[in-house]
């Protein structure tokens, strides 16, 4: 089994990336490829579902920092959801929760796209 698998779907005009595994220097290229693939297809509305993401290190954060400007320049967004505690801690500690909107669940993120309650950045990790 691969150490990182990314499954992509389209829902409500957003590209949803399901990350399964861990993101570090060994696997970051696979992660970057999946994000870049969305941008190449002009999908600037991206939700990363972290339900099966064990952890992310600085190289993974670098991928997100590398694309956020292009996404914002194209009126898009990069949301994250379903973070476990370890993943949330790294985003929160570095202040990335001010740059990337974080939702407890994918449903909440989708709901915010549809004009529902905006509960972004309320996540505290799923433990």
């Amino acid at each position: 089994m691969a150490e990182l698998q990314v499954h992509a779907t389209q829902k409500d005009e957003a590209r949803i990336l399901y990350i399964d595994g861990f993101i570090n220097a060994h696997t970051v290229q696979e992660f970057e490829k999946s994000v870049q693939s969305a941008l190449e297809e002009k999908n600037f509305r991206i939700l990363i579902n972290c339900k099966d993401l064990q952890y992310i290190n600085s190289s993974g954060l670098g991928v997100l920092m590398g694309v956020i400007e292009e996404i914002q320049d194209n009126d898009g967004f990069l949301y994250l959801s379903n973070m476990n505690e370890t993943v949330f801690n790294i985003f929160d500690t570095l202040g990335f929760t001010h740059l990337f909107k974080v939702f407890d669940t994918e449903e909440e993120a989708i709901s915010s796209l549809q004009g529902g309650a905006d509960s972004g950045n309320s996540a505290q990790g799923e433990g």
Binding site: N57, S58, L61, G62, M65, G66, I68, E69, N89, I90, T93, L94, G95, F96, H98, L99
Partner: peptide
């Protein structure tokens, strides 16, 4: 770092924070 959309160079900071 966030304002300037920098990339890389966070490893040592993470080690110190954690």
């Amino acid at each position: 770092y966030i304002e300037e959309r920098r990339r890389g160079g966070l490893g040592l900071l993470i080690m110190n924070q954690f």
